[in-house]
């Protein structure tokens, strides 16, 4: 069939003009409206407000009328040692999270899948997911108590004849501690995603493999792993695409000035310079823009690389 015939068929099928189709769907637009308004007001207006990164904010003039000042905000920012420290901390903590936390739920889901006692499996899975539903405020409360110098962990160390460790003010262990807490809180939750993917694997594959004499390792390696690898790739892309987020809610509730050196991340830095000192909103916005753009670029780059290598991506 020639191209022109195809085009005619398409035109015939799409007989109704656009205006008519919009009119026919007017109630759908009406249903869509409240949600769209929400996204416009609370998501797109702040994105529009990012112009403040290139302005000198004056309270009486507002975002729109404040005078432009080029890249002065970025210039001020880039000479601030605390800013670069926070960037470094963010990257190091995010890197530790990807290295130590990220693989754990995957491993956990594979091992959980190998548990044949259905009831036990259900019970432990329920327990693993539990901490996810508590706020970091609650978790920090429990943890600050346990890790304090006369808390449970140190008492245990003392009973075993070891020395007490000041976990919460110790710069050399604080980052690892953060990752460990994240693992404690979120492993079970992340695990669900992988378990869902494992459940979607056709059971006959396992049966066939058993008949062919595959042992358990073979089945994990050649059936379970390929079954979840796509989800793993997607999750990894998303994680790298938010590398400039290292867990604000966690850190702001747990850290203290003694460990700012190693745990002050970009988000806590912005919070501190904005709300705990005389604020320069222009500079603070510049940090936000820097962070958002970096995340976006990394997301697109990782996605591009993954599509190149494995043919899977998210966009």
């Amino acid at each position: 069939m020639s191209g022109s015939t195809l085009r005619t068929i398409r035109q015939m099928r799409r007989k109704k003009p656009l205006r008519q189709r919009i009119w026919e769907n007017r109630y759908i637009y009406l249903l869509l409206l409240p949600g769209l308004l929400f996204f416009i007001i609370f998501k797109y207006v702040p994105i529009y407000g990012l112009q403040l990164a290139f302005k000198r904010y004056q309270v009486n003039l507002g975002i729109n009328m404040s005078p432009w000042n080029g890249v002065d905000n970025f210039r001020l920012l880039f000479v601030d040692g605390d800013f670069w420290k926070s960037v470094r901390n963010t990257l190091v903590i995010a890197y530790l999270q990807i290295l130590l936390f990220f693989p754990f739920p995957i491993l956990l889901s594979i091992l959980l899948n190998e548990v044949r006692q259905t009831r036990l499996k259900k019970v432990v899975q329920t327990i693993y997911t539990l901490p996810h539903f508590l706020s970091w405020v609650i978790v920090s409360g429990m943890v600050l108590n346990m890790l304090s110098s006369n808390g449970a962990i140190n008492n245990l160390l003392a009973v075993m004849g070891l020395e007490r460790v000041q976990f919460l003010t110790n710069k050399s262990v604080f980052r690892q501690l953060l990752v460990l807490l994240l693992t404690w809180k979120e492993s079970g939750w992340s695990c669900i995603l992988y378990l869902a993917a494992i459940t979607a694997i056709d059971p006959s594959l396992y049966e066939a493999a058993t008949i062919d004499g595959a042992n358990r390792w073979h089945k994990i390696r050649f059936i379970t792993w390929p079954g979840i690898s796509m989800i793993v790739v997607v999750t990894l892309i998303l994680r790298i695409g938010s590398i400039m987020d290292a867990g604000f809610e966690q850190i702001i509730n747990i850290y203290n000035p003694t460990v700012y050196e190693v745990a002050d991340i970009i988000d806590t830095y912005v919070y501190r310079i904005t709300f705990q000192r005389p604020a320069n909103f222009g500079v603070s916005t510049a940090v936000g823009l820097f962070k958002g753009l970096t995340n976006c670029i990394l997301l697109l780059t990782t996605n591009w690389i993954c599509v190149r290598i494995s043919g899977t991506g998210i966009v």
Partner: peptide, 25 residues
């Protein structure tokens, strides 16, 4: 226009205005 609106919504998952514009809003 469904696709356009859907992408516009999903875009906000990956990019946002950050703390200060939100606070000022």
């Amino acid at each position: 226009g469904k696709k356009f609106f859907l992408y516009a919504v999903i875009f906000t998952m990956y990019f946002n205005g950050g703390l200060i514009p939100y606070y000022l809003l």
